[in-house]
Design a protein around this nucleic acid. Sequence first.
DNA 1: TTCTGTAAAAGAAGATTATTCTGTTTTTGC
DNA 2: GCAAAAACAGAATAATCTTCTTTTACAGAA
Lengths: 204, 204
Amino acid sequence: MNQFHILEKRFPGRRAALKRDILEQALYCFIELGVEATTIEAIKARCETSVGAIYHHFGNKEGILSALFFAAQDDQRQHLDRELANTKSLHEAVYSVIGSYLDWVVANPEWARFLYQARSAVAKGPFQEELKDRNAKGFRELKAKLLGFGNESNSIVQPFEIVISLIVGPSENYCKAWLAGRVQTSPRDYREEFAESAWRSLQR
Amino acid sequence: MNQFHILEKRFPGRRAALKRDILEQALYCFIELGVEATTIEAIKARCETSVGAIYHHFGNKEGILSALFFAAQDDQRQHLDRELANTKSLHEAVYSVIGSYLDWVVANPEWARFLYQARSAVAKGPFQEELKDRNAKGFRELKAKLLGFGNESNSIVQPFEIVISLIVGPSENYCKAWLAGRVQTSPRDYREEFAESAWRSLQR
DNA sequence: TTCTGTAAAAGAAGATTATTCTGTTTTTGC
DNA sequence: GCAAAAACAGAATAATCTTCTTTTACAGAA
């Protein structure tokens, strides 16, 4: 299982072979050269196709970027949903959110790096509405889950607006630093610390 | 005092008038159109100069971006240093770091938005070394300050690698959401919550 | 199988935009 | 006042995204 199983799940079959290949090579370029510096020419060269084929499948550079971005985001969210499904308490849920986030980043560092890099571009481009809808949906579901643990939710003594920031803010910040090489220790090694700290930060 | 006092402080005097003007108009364009979509032509048009003048002063688009980025980062850091200077305990210091961060973002929302947007571009471009040096220096100084409160530093029971993430992660996350319009309440209104939560998250 | 319409693919041409280069004007230091 | 350096202007160049036209492959019907 290579790092591209995410694409095979999303664009299956023989017909989509070139489509997948373009996405693979594009991701490689985006990671290697950066989103900005990657040219259509470079992608074309890597998968030995033509500009015509690329534009036929994706319309423009933004189209490639968005396809990759949404594929990665979906995979990350599926991972979260699986972890979250079995949780029976708020405490467990908070641990799941943080644990699944750290796990996913460590398991897919290239994809994670790409997600951080590409977000702002997608947020401005032609798929900004789709991004907003997805984020809103994700936020709604997570909120429902966290507030759905009955009286125990009294543990959350913070305004809900800031709860997500309190939970994932530190993990996100540390993962970015790790992916950028500013710190060496794997985020997974601090799983307990981040989860415990987040839990404490919610109390009053 | 308009939003450009930051530039007047950094590029003072009559000689730098055009330089400042180019930076002002460029910042306007970056904010309005996005960093990617801003063309040299657009900047040129807004300050009624020539491409020659722009390239004479900044070398390339990246040069404009970096000059703006470092100006903003310096101002933010100066603000932090002022707040931090008078602190007499670790508890006060943590409150200062968070308070000054939230204050600065709310006082300079356009600059803050720009800082978030431009960081990745600067981190890849020709000024990546300068960025690294600045970040390393800032991190070193902050670390020294936080660990310099004698025995009381025992309050920090976390590995120091993750301490900065624990302190500023949630605030940063929330400020981004606020600048993107995903939440309405001003970060300043949650000053106490973020500071208290961060403090609690450090204990064990 | 042969025909036909649709999708896939190729690559040349067009349009946009960053950058360079050359020349001119202005300012500075002596 | 004069030489040297900096500031400025704009045409020319080069890189790169996107569109357009043409050719090829393929799936389903007659």
